[in-house]
Amino acid sequence: MIADDTQTCQPLAGGQSLMPMLNLRVAQPEVLVDLNRIAALSFIEIQNDVVHIGAMVRYTALMHSPLIDKHVPLLAMALPYIAHQAVRNRGTIGGSVALADPAAEMPAVLKALAATIVVVSAHGQREIPAEAFFLGIYETALDEGELVHSIKIPLATSGHRFGFYELARRHGDYAMAGVAVSAQSINPCTELSIVFFGVADQPLRAVDAQAVLEGCAISDNAALTAAQQSLPAELMLGDTGVSADTRLQLARVALKRALLSMAD
């Protein structure tokens, strides 16, 4: 049905973003395909060096999963910031990935963790690195007829450190600015991965900040300031009530606080 291009067809995952769009008549597909009864997409398992998560795993299941707690701590840190419990009870990780809302936590976290998105279609299966998956506001590397099947996230190792910080006006709101950070080590910093959400048109990797901090102690003030200054002002988006300038300032603060939380 999803492969049929004679009618507009929309897969429905947890519905916590799509249903509002349908209710407000912003989205008007001719056909909805409900994925909620596909039990085969609700797994969380370890396969070699990755945690493999089915697209239809709901946020609440992730929050209650000891595997996620142990092996993907950054994801566990981000989950409580996603909306509210009743929404997390339905919302799915695959839905968030496929929607690609640049203000959402999941895309940034997955990009920061160098996750892989497994997608399927009538023609088979392929894997797309998160790095190349999120292309813009609600825009992904999914082709026509493709669905998110699952997500593979490398297991955290013992020395791995993570930081997460989000600035939202109210609990559960989309972030005004937020950042997910992963590092192989922090003293000095190695293999830093810094990805912002809620600041640009897609999860934004802070390439320059990563470079500035690489090899420095995470609490090195000068490096921290330089990293803050290196954030790309030109990519920051303004919207109602928040200018691009403010966004930049908030992103800088979020970065500092995320990094300092890792030093503790």
Binding site: R170, D173, T240, G241
Partner: peptide, 16 residues
Amino acid sequence: YLNATMADYLVPMAGE
């Protein structure tokens, strides 16, 4: 009108 939804017009919620 720019913020005519409850996600955009911020009312006070319990958390704050």
